[in-house]
């Protein structure tokens, strides 16, 4: 349903009313912005030395390499691992063997219901603290793999089930074995419908890498602290780093929409919480 169905073409009175609403909204929004800007001005947030750091090559490199690159690295490793994890347990949930189905079900449900931060903290305390084998970087990757993998397992299961049953029957009729049917017939067709969901899960993974803040992992949120401790620019630094996240995520969402349009025709993709 397009939103225009919800209301009629406005008459003269309504047009006047809408003009009033428009005016009020603009005043309200400008008011909020102006108030924010005023508070920033009063508290001297616009001063050059609070923003200079974002124009200094050394710090740009610090933010981009130590921050963004680490964040992207964690997200990429996590999503690749999550796809593998999701495939194993997604296919496992469709297995003919009862014990494997139940095991996959339990694993997927467990990691979906537990907060990522709880997983991350546990991995950190168990495997990283002291001289454990994992660095915080890999704790983040591992936790995100488990959570996003569990979510993707559901996506994969649904995608595989959505492949028309005639395809599977035809494959069996040709004499392919169970694993061949899965690998050569069902998965390739399922991947097409699942790709947008996988990309939007990447947005989720990218956002969740920020949780590494709690376990001293590197990343964009981790470079925030040293920057404001050195320059006392809490507000500008928060704005800049949030902007970087938003831009990266919007690019990812845009790619997802593009891929979806290519593969499936028009439909929108969105990130989930």
């Amino acid at each position: 349903m397009s939103s225009s169905v919800l209301f009629d073409a406005p008459g003269p009175k309504t047009v006047a009313r809408h003009r009033l609403y428009t005016l009020l909204t603009i005043v309200g929004l400008l008011g909020i912005l102006a108030f924010f800007a005023y508070r920033m001005l009063v508290t001297r947030q616009f001063e050059y030395d609070k923003w200079e750091v974002f124009l200094t090559p050394r710090y740009i490199r610090f933010i981009l390499v130590d921050g963004l690159l680490n964040t992207l690295g964690m997200a990429v490793f996590a999503i690749i691992a999550a796809i593998v994890f999701g495939l194993v347990f997604g296919v496992g949930k469709l297995s003919d063997h009862g014990w494997l189905r139940w095991l996959s079900f339990a694993v997927v449900e467990f990691f979906r219901a537990v907060p990522v931060l709880l997983l991350m903290t546990f991995l950190f305390l168990q495997f990283a603290i002291g001289d454990g084998p994992l660095s915080p970087f890999w704790c983040v990757v591992l936790a995100l793999m488990l959570y996003n993998g569990a979510v993707l397992a559901e996506v994969f299961r649904a995608g595989i089930n959505a492949v028309p049953s005639g395809q599977v029957e035809a494959a069996y009729a040709l004499g392919l074995r169970k694993s061949q049917v899965m690998v050569q017939i069902q998965l390739p067709q399922a991947v097409k419908t699942m790709l947008p969901a996988i990309i939007s899960q990447m947005v989720v993974a990218l956002k969740d890498t920020s949780l590494g803040f709690y376990i001293l992992a590197p990343g964009l949120t981790a470079v925030y602290r040293p920057i404001y401790q050195e320059f006392g620019n809490q507000v500008p630094a928060a704005l800049v780093i949030a902007a970087i996240y938003i831009v990266v995520n919007l690019i990812l969402t845009w790619v997802a929409t593009l891929v979806q349009r290519r593969l499936l025709g028009e439909r929108k993709v969105s990130a989930s919480a």
Partner: peptide
Amino acid sequence: RVGPVAIMRRAALVYVSIFRNTPLLMIFIF
């Protein structure tokens, strides 16, 4: 977001795009 006033629609869309694409942790930090 679905209402008849164009500027409200746009304001809500901007809000949603910003907050959906910012990590929760950044909002906490802010």
